[in-house]
Nucleic acid binder design. Structure first.
Lengths: 209, 209
DNA sequence: GTAGATATTAATACGTGGTCTTAAGCACGC
DNA sequence: GCGTGCTTAAGACCACGTATTAATATCTAC
């Protein structure tokens, strides 16, 4: 039976509690704080904290966006500059999620993912696929270090693009890779008519399920 | 004004729609399908689909827990077999998230991630980091195709492990890569006593969380 | 045709988790 | 005393449901 907290302390605790678990309702909070539901609502109002459903919704949205933008996004990281078919730059701020817990060192495939997606995005075609990649991880990158990847098309032979990518952390090279990316122009693949497009559409619809 | 769909088709579409966007309310669905709200509710009942708030809540909950295991997990995919320092096999069932929408083809870095994490996990050391990787994407992989990656240590020179990885889809090679992984033994870095082992134990427990 | 099943819609009562407004009760300080 | 701050209460409203009952369509088999 901890005696009731002062308003300020309650506000502090409120933020803490909802930070840890955003699903709590006002009723539950009221019980925890031994105050009325109205008081909790007033507190939320003062602190600009939305209702529980809203909090939940935001979480869900953010999570689906975030996960998607991590996994799905056109480019892993943030696209800073592109000159299609010539060069592109992206920035990635790796989070602790991407690191080995033990050491805080970012797992190689995240750095690869940034570079690979940049190389692919750079190619000016409907669809582009990585063929081969030769990469070197020059030095470890830690969570929080801002990765700048720069991709440059060094040569092009028909559908083949040779793309070099260098990633840097505060100016120092941490990764370099040579990618061969194939441009796949769907117009030159099958019969390239409406029929094929329909098939593709079906597939992509199914994929979303 | 597409005429109203038959029940079956509506059910199919319903699952599709909610798969793509779980936030839609019954009212909105009713409008989309040009049926009454009640009908939508009946449909959901028959299909065992919970209400929108519940869907949102689950998403949010899942997202806060599970999302991490995809990014953070020791090995991307599921570890099927390991013989430390010798060989290892993992399985990955890529989802639509990992694919280009347009084509359903899995983005290269996911395949790379499976291979890379497997190669790293294979190395019998406290910490292992990828040094270089030469990889080839032999043929496209589509969402839903089960990827089996097999990593083999082909040579070892001190702290350097040369690991070959081949990924297959139903027996066919789709990816091959040569990785050079560096074992970083902290015993040769820090002071390395019992105290340290305790720390390690703690850490590896945390890692499993 | 018409009965019977299937599908759809409507109406109503209830529940949860809120919003917004108005009003009242209390304690504290001056 | 009186105001101010904090708390609580009460009532009207809303979104998005569940659960139930009942009334229509619509189609299908006989």
């Amino acid at each position: 039976m901890a005696s009731r907290l002062a308003k300020q302390d309650r506000h502090r605790r409120l933020k803490e509690l909802l930070g840890a678990d955003p699903f709590i309702t006002d009723r539950e909070l009221a019980r925890m704080f031994q105050v009325s539901v109205q008081t909790v609502r007033l507190d939320r109002l003062e602190l600009g904290i939305p209702e529980s459903r809203e909090r939940t919704r935001r979480l869900a949205e953010e999570a689906t966006n975030k996960v998607r933008s991590v996994t799905t996004g056109e480019v892993i990281g943030e696209l800073i500059h592109v000159s299609l078919g010539v060069e592109a730059v992206s920035m990635l701020e790796p989070t602790a999620d991407m690191a080995f817990r033990r050491t805080g060192i970012i797992r190689g495939h995240h750095i690869f993912a940034q570079a690979n997606s940049l190389a692919v995005a750079l190619v000016d075609a409907e669809v582009a696929l990585t063929g081969t990649a030769n990469v070197r991880f020059l030095r470890p990158v830690k969570a929080g270090e801002r990765l700048i990847a720069k991709a440059t098309v060094v040569r092009r032979a028909g559908r083949k693009y040779y793309v070099d990518v260098v990633s840097r952390v505060s100016g120092k090279d941490v990764f370099e890779g040579k990618f061969v990316v194939f441009a796949v122009d769907p117009r030159k693949e099958g019969e390239g008519t409406k029929k094929e497009e329909e098939v593709k559409e079906e597939i992509s619809l199914e994929d979303r399920t």
